[in-house]
């Protein structure tokens, strides 16, 4: 059997390794646009306080997967899925232009969600959704540090990523202002008491937190960028952390059923019986997406066992809590999610 996996995040890599452990003979090809190997996405939020992060964030070079008889095509884009022929068309510096599959695993993850009002200003801000993004941010920051200056940051979005990055930049010594639209931080993951604690922890670390903010636009002012709410404030660097958008484009193009993500049944199977979805892109029958490491890895391991015919019962999400990697913060009432 030929298995093709698109994506080298925790979903794709966990699936590939588990399936290889269960099947010595089936061909496994993993296609990814990444170049740097399998890296830890959670550690992107610690991208400024650790000096060696660009190396230490890599958990497994792709050669390690190749040594395990997993064919990795990196720096490659998948441009099309031909469901009739059961092939995917690929574009990159590899020899192959087309891959045949018996089973296709879509583990593309998500891109940064940019609220529509901000889209005209994409050249003015950073996102932090990948190691490529982190390297760009670090290079920008290094420009200031090497002139003995500290950049002043605006972070738009006080959710999980916004709070973690604000904390990390503050601990690394930069000045940070965090803008949040709602009346408390991380309102989706935390109870009110913990939002208040988080606010205090961030403020104590030097972050200026502005709640109930309606950010209207961004304006370039010479070498600064301004954030306009009721007032206009200027900063050196701007980071938009307003959520994620599952990468459903390829699936949609191929005619698979999509909602917010790629719609799957309880067996993580899409509307095409040979195509499965894992991770951020997989939208379960209850319209739920599981965009956290623990359930994603759980899905990936389950699917490998299911396709290797070692499991028959459908996937059930494990109970888990989310931990915000904000320096010095520990939720008093962590909420269990399932």
């Amino acid at each position: 059997m030929q298995i093709v996996i698109i994506g080298s995040g925790v979903a794709g890599v966990s699936f590939a390794e588990k399936y290889r452990a269960l099947s010595a003979d089936d061909e496994i090809t993993l296609v990814t646009r990444e170049h740097d190997g399998y890296y830890s996405r959670p550690l992107l939020s610690r991208g400024f306080s650790k000096a060696d992060i660009e190396q230490s964030i890599i958990l497994k070079p792709f050669d390690k997967l190749r040594e395990n008889n997993i064919n990795v095509l990196c720096g490659v884009e998948v441009t099309d899925i031909d469901r009739g022929d059961k092939t995917v068309a690929i574009n990159g510096s590899c020899q192959e232009k087309e891959l045949q599959y018996d089973k296709l695993i879509l583990a593309l993850g998500s891109s940064a969600f940019i609220p529509p009002p901000f889209r005209p200003f994409e050249k003015l801000f950073f996102c932090l959704n990948s190691l490529v993004d982190l390297k760009a941010l670090r290079k920008f920051r290094q420009g200031f540090l090497s002139q003995n200056q500290r950049p002043e940051w605006a972070i738009i979005g006080g959710g999980l990523i916004g709070c973690e990055v604000a904390s990390d930049l503050a601990v690394a010594g930069d000045k940070v202002t965090l803008f949040h639209a709602m009346d408390r931080l991380m309102e989706r993951q935390l109870v009110a008491e913990d939002s208040a604690l988080l606010l205090k922890v961030l403020q104590d670390s030097g972050v200026k937190v502005l709640l109930n903010q309606a950010v209207q636009e961004f304006i370039k002012e010479e070498d600064k960028v301004c954030v306009r709410t009721e007032v206009t404030t200027e900063f050196d660097g701007l980071l938009v952390a307003c959520g994620f958008k599952p990468r459903t484009e390829l699936a949609e193009l191929a005619g698979l059923k999509i909602g917010r993500g790629i719609k799957v049944n309880q067996y993580l199977q899409t509307s095409d019986e040979s195509i499965f979805a894992l991770g951020d892109v997989a939208e379960l029958p209850n319209n739920k997406l599981y965009a956290f490491i623990l359930p994603i890895r759980n899905q990936a391991l389950w699917l490998a066992e299911f396709l290797a015919e070692q499991k028959q019962d459908p996937w059930t999400p494990p109970v888990f809590t989310t931990k915000a990697k904000v320096h010095g913060f520990e939720a008093v009432h962590p909420r269990k999610i399932s």
């Binding site: 925790v10 890296y39 830890s40 959670p42 550690l43 958990l59 497994k60 490491i293």
Partner: peptide, 9 residues
């Protein structure tokens, strides 16, 4: 010790 799956230390 570092987790090889997610990087947790």
């Amino acid at each position: 010790y570092q987790c090889g799956v997610c990087g947790h230390i």
